[in-house]
Amino acid sequence: MAFIEAKNLEKVYETEGVRTPALHGVSFSIEKGEFVAVMGASGSGKSTLLHILGFLDRPSGGEYVFNGKRFSDYNDDELADIRNREMGFVFQSFNLLPRTSVLENVMLPLLYSKVKDGEWEARARAAVEAVGLEHRMNHVSSQLSGGEKQRVAIARALVMNPKVIFADEPTGNLDSKSGGVIMEILDDLNRTRGHTIILITHETYTASYAERIIRLHDGIIAEDRKVKERVNGKEGFVK
């Protein structure tokens, strides 16, 4: 069985009796170590898909298997454990804790993990160094630029050494230069460390870092193809 397997996934939102379908039967599989970009216009259901893939939301129908684990077999706390150990998240709006140092932000997933607290700092430092922010270790998040904030978020996603990193429009709030740096880092994590990366984006350029693009349109897959000319990021960005 594939690492990630989606079969006929459906999602319908219901608010105050109004049913809003977001996904109508989406099926695909992703192998370990792939770098997949999910593209689509806003409202195409790409964020909904990411939430389901990231065990943050339950599908209304169909089946989803992540690394042999079925969503429906676990309760909320067990899902939290799986997210903690096996998944990393990077969001468009960074979601760093305000007035909290870079190191402490990166440590956050460790707080909810079973890793011994004696190892926390060393692991967090290693993750901060991996994204090249060792000189910012004790700065608070408000003292960082947007690009730096997103690098901290990547370090936070890395700190538990997850199998997969979900990135939801990671460059959406950044200028092209900072966005480029973020993509270089993600690319490098995929190539040199073998992290599976699932990237949500609407920018073609950003998507071209991936090796495969799944394009959603109105809740169904409109296209699923390999990228012919993958942007070749600089090697050795991630230390």
């Binding site: 706390d77 939290a80 956050l108």
Partner: peptide, 11 residues
Amino acid sequence: EIGLRKAVGAY
């Protein structure tokens, strides 16, 4: 903040 904590594994 709460959402983030939950996403990264808080019970």
